[in-house]
């Protein structure tokens, strides 16, 4: 296998794994921003929470991986639901500045709370034995956990898309994103819809944070460190879009991995330059509506 080809395969593989994590975390953000018009900078807090739930359950209580994943989803969904009812709801349709402040405040609190509970160090994530090590695919071997990540991510994405296409809940969500007033006037209980969507989106972020604890290390400043990545995926994908962020996540994931592999010295500079260019070209993102 030639070196160029090996590099190509490596970048594609790791980029795709990263993209899955980015998408799972960001899709909920896209929907809350698009549907409720809410600038939720604290979205990463939910991903971090999912990661902490998973790593604590697995390493401190010996809970099996699969169960810990479900717990991560449920815990973040529930936690976000409480925050939504208590705080977020007050600011729907309000001033962007207030939303920015509220969610920045939540980020700060999460940094302190996570340090208090889990300490300043990052949480080690040990995948189950059957996923650690290398998987031999014949022509070359790949890390087992990341292969699982890609498959699992793909499954979740397909499930999510089908769910939004085929179910009644999905129809309501799409209706509310398209035209909130119309949706209200045809009798959709948007307050409940918001809460459920918010919880689902945050739960997915928690799941993404848990699955991706290996790539985006779980530590107290997680929400702050990765905020720009999540926002970029949403902004490039287009607010309120479900599929846009997927394309954006794949683009960003592969480009980011590629730069880190080929030109690590340049850091994330190109990613931001690329984002800037995309946003100038299409201010509403690749799939945003005008």
């Amino acid at each position: 296998m030639s070196n160029t080809f090996a590099a190509f395969v490596s970048i594609g593989f790791h980029g795709l794994a990263f993209a899955m994590v980015l998408y799972l975390i960001s899709v909920g953000l896209s929907v809350t921003m698009g549907m409720m018009g809410f600038v939720n900078l604290a979205h990463g807090v939910f991903a971090m929470l999912g990661g902490y739930v998973l790593t604590s359950l697995m390493s401190r209580m010996g809970v099996p991986f699969g169960l810990a994943l479900i717990a991560a989803f449920l815990a973040t969904a529930l936690g976000s639901l409480i925050l939504e009812r208590l705080l977020y709801r007050r600011l729907y349709g309000g001033d962007e500045l207030d939303q920015v402040l509220l969610t920045m405040g939540l980020i700060f609190m999460s940094v302190a709370a996570a340090t208090y509970v889990w300490g300043p160090l990052q949480q080690p994530m040990h995948p189950p034995r059957w996923l650690s090590g290398q998987l031999d695919f014949g022509f070359r071997s790949f890390p087992g956990y990341r292969s699982f990540l890609i498959l699992c991510g793909a499954g979740l994405v397909i499930g999510l898309w089908l769910g939004l296409e085929r179910t009644r809940f999905g129809m309501k969500v799409r209706a509310a994103v398209d035209n909130l007033r119309m949706a209200q006037s045809v009798g959709i209980n948007t307050s409940r819809l918001f809460a459920l969507t918010f919880a689902l989106g945050s739960g997915l972020a928690g799941l993404g944070g848990a699955l991706g604890a290996d790539l985006l290390a779980i530590n107290p400043s997680y929400a702050l460190d990765n905020l720009v990545y999540f926002l970029i995926v949403v902004a490039v994908g287009g607010l309120g879009s479900i599929r846009g962020p997927f394309i954006a996540a794949v683009l960003i994931g592969i480009a980011d991995t590629g730069f880190k592999y080929l030109l690590p010295e340049l850091g994330a500079f190109f990613i931001y330059a690329l984002t800037m260019a995309l946003l100038l070209w299409r201010p509403r993102g690749l799939f945003g509506r005008a």
Binding site: M33, V39, E96, V100, V228, L231, I232, A235, L239, E265, L266, G267, A268, F269, Y272, A273, T275, M276, L279, L280, P283, R284
Partner: peptide, 27 residues
Amino acid sequence: IVLRTTGLTLLMQTLVVATLLYEAANK
């Protein structure tokens, strides 16, 4: 460049401008 837009896109663009400068200074 960025004041053509408003709202979220503007917010993002101001953030990206600062991040670009940060990375440039880092490099």
